[in-house]
Design a protein around this nucleic acid. Structure first.
Lengths: 203, 203
DNA sequence: CTATTAACTTAACAGTGTTAACCCCTTCGG
DNA sequence: CCGAAGGGGTTAACACTGTTAAGTTAATAG
């Protein structure tokens, strides 16, 4: 039940869980499989993680940090709000598409199935939205963007990005629409809606 | 294995499955529970549905029809493209929020968990997108909308709506943002991006 | 040397989807 | 009228799942 990933075995469990999550997907991730793969009995895992959800929460933590890092890199890559935003949008979608397993446990799985992901950690995930809102704010200050509620706009952007990621990952988007087209369009679409004048944005 | 819902029991199974889906959610929907509730053995279900996925597919069919009906009603409620669209957007989000279980099996569940929902039925689900695209097209013809690819725009709208529905349903949106605000903003946001001039749209 | 404790195991419970084998009853052919 | 066929249903079983209780083993502390 100790939450720091020391003790050797804890690390091993987490690493194996992550590997299994990636190769087999969440649906086929089981305590027994993890245990078997590291040569321990299934119940040993319960000495380090109270239950499966706690283990998955640890994986979510990893994913949250990873996404945050990549968004930060995108944000820090420029001073220009528009560039910052479009880079962050691309980073977000890229994360979702290249790490669908992380994305699934972070943003798709019904919380009802899972014991609640601790509220304090949700705050950590919220940093990302605040970063988007901050870029929007500076765009408003510099006079490029219309003055709207930045946090509402950030959430609007997020829902758009989330929709793109999940519908692409679940292969529900008509294949006649290339994903690159949809991704580019969604990014420029969000930014265009923020702009003051009718300037077209290429992404 | 007969696919027409006659034979009495088939109806009964489907009705009970739907009820259980609504009260307990997909995660807790089990063949044995359905059977128990109607006083049959679990294996009887397999005389009418090849497996659990086939049963869920039947439920998806219901959901697809229901959503389509509500979108049609919204579409038929007006001749004005903007009104048609905003009514359809509201109808879509409303369906997703009031029937989260239908929405989940239709648009959220990983197809990987489930044997593929038959391709021909996906076409049925695609009617909805075509209806949105059609409204956009007539808006373009009437000169209200910028000339973009209507099908791409319809998909862009869909991803936005889907994002709103799923993030609201999974309670991942910060409660400080009222869902009504987000819903209204997403609708007007989509429509604004279609417009030729900077006209603000109230929704 | 004994007592405690940490690390780990096996056995078991209650649940899941699914298959195989069987049973009973109706219907139909000869 | 009797036997075969078959539909509609059953029970038992397999191979899984997460999780708990109880037991074992080894190291460490007093």
């Amino acid at each position: 039940m100790s939450r720091n990933p020391d003790s050797g075995l804890q690390r091993l469990i987490l690493d194996t869980a992550r590997k299994l999550l990636f190769t087999e997907g969440y649906a086929r991730l089981s305590m027994r499989k993890i245990a078997q793969r590291i040569g321990y009995s299934a119940t040993s895992i319960y000495l380090h993680y109270g239950n499966k959800d706690e283990l998955v929460h640890a994986l979510i933590d990893e994913g949250v940090d990873l996404l945050h890092e990549e968004l930060c890199a995108a944000y820090d890559g420029s001073q220009e709000p528009i560039e910052q935003l479009s880079e962050m949008f691309l980073a977000y979608i890229n994360f979702g598409l290249t790490r669908p397993e992380y994305y699934e446990i972070m943003y798709v799985l019904h919380p009802e199935y899972m014991t609640r992901y601790p509220a304090e950690k949700y705050r950590k995930a919220r940093r990302n939205l605040e970063m988007i809102a901050s870029a929007i704010s500076s765009g408003v200050k510099s006079g490029q963007f219309e003055t709207h509620d930045p946090m509402l706009c950030a959430n609007l952007a997020w829902t758009q990005l989330h929709g793109v990621v999940t519908l692409l990952n679940s292969e529900r988007v008509d294949k006649r629409i290339p994903s690159e087209t949809l991704i580019a369009a969604s990014g420029s679409h969000i930014i265009r809606s923020l702009l003051k004048n009718q300037t077209q944005v290429e992404v």
